[in-house]
Design a protein around this nucleic acid. Sequence first.
DNA 1: TTGAATCATACAACAGGATGTTGGATGATT
DNA 2: AATCATCCAACATCCTGTTGTATGATTCAA
Lengths: 188, 188
Amino acid sequence: MNRRTAITTQTKQNLIDAFWSLYCDMRIEKITIKDITNKAGYNRGTFYEYFKDVYDVLEHIEDSLIPSLDELPPITIGSEMRGMPTNTFLELYEKNSKYYAVLLGDGGDPAFASKLKNAIKPIIIQEFANKPTVNLQELDYVVEYTLSAMIGMMSYWYRQTDKLPSDQLHELIKKLTEQGITRQLPAF
Amino acid sequence: MNRRTAITTQTKQNLIDAFWSLYCDMRIEKITIKDITNKAGYNRGTFYEYFKDVYDVLEHIEDSLIPSLDELPPITIGSEMRGMPTNTFLELYEKNSKYYAVLLGDGGDPAFASKLKNAIKPIIIQEFANKPTVNLQELDYVVEYTLSAMIGMMSYWYRQTDKLPSDQLHELIKKLTEQGITRQLPAF
DNA sequence: TTGAATCATACAACAGGATGTTGGATGATT
DNA sequence: AATCATCCAACATCCTGTTGTATGATTCAA
């Protein structure tokens, strides 16, 4: 890599890292550009060489966390989860948990959940779109339901101090996906 | 009511209404106190008589939208949805949809979803807590799963322009709750 | 290889605007 | 008439985003 681009890349990353360490502790509205550059060790003006404003940094981070099509393993019907790739999603979450847990948590960005869902949704839907019996509109809602449940569950899990064991969590999700909620309730 | 308190109540409400109409159109970070007081027709200083800052207004609104225990109808096992009161939740959402759809949407507040879940969760859990077979920790996750899915689904529904018919949505949610996701997929 | 031209990087300083506080005027309550 | 609440004007402070400039890196022709 060019010496020059190496420097700029590093500077940008330093700013990103400084932002993230602040973002983990405080609401984004309270983060000033001064805070970021102070922490990263740059002049405040330097920030504007790389980002438009504080929200631009967040967007940059979010974009880098949205999986690209080829990053996700191809999904085939008849796989372990019979079409709904919960495991793929869980692995994705775990891989990026450092960021996901914050972005999808209480102090995070509600738009990120949508971005994530919208990135994954077409991949899943595509698998079923050519089936003759499929109602595309309903399918859309089923996928929305699933992804919302997954995200909610995982975020909650990461928020807990005494967590359910990981394999028990995975098992529970699998059962909920395949059998529904009612059957998991003690009264049933 | 006292004339004086009537005035303050009205002023406070005017400020809240002005805030909400702005909040529906723009991110909260972009809303200035000047915007609010201009819209409501007060001096900027008056705002500080009632609220600490812009976020304080949002908190006030959110608190008024969290259902109290006696507001929610008592939940009994063996009811229509066999214990998981999805209908109760759907009705709650629809009753407050003007606010819920915004607060739980992309430009909303992720903390509100948690507040809402935490308010409803104990009511549901209480119904099962005394069953001998229940695993309280797992139950907690099942409820989290359910509420996350409901909130995600409803928010998505309100975001759509050409919505699935309401009764079809309710029917789909019922099936997903009772039978799981896998059985709703065309490949199954 | 050298050195002059060009470009990128980082910074200081400034104007504009938002914030939160203080002290005072007006009008209601007692 | 005295007291108190409501509302507002004005102020100091801080944050923002832009502009102009100095420093150092890269390029290319001689």
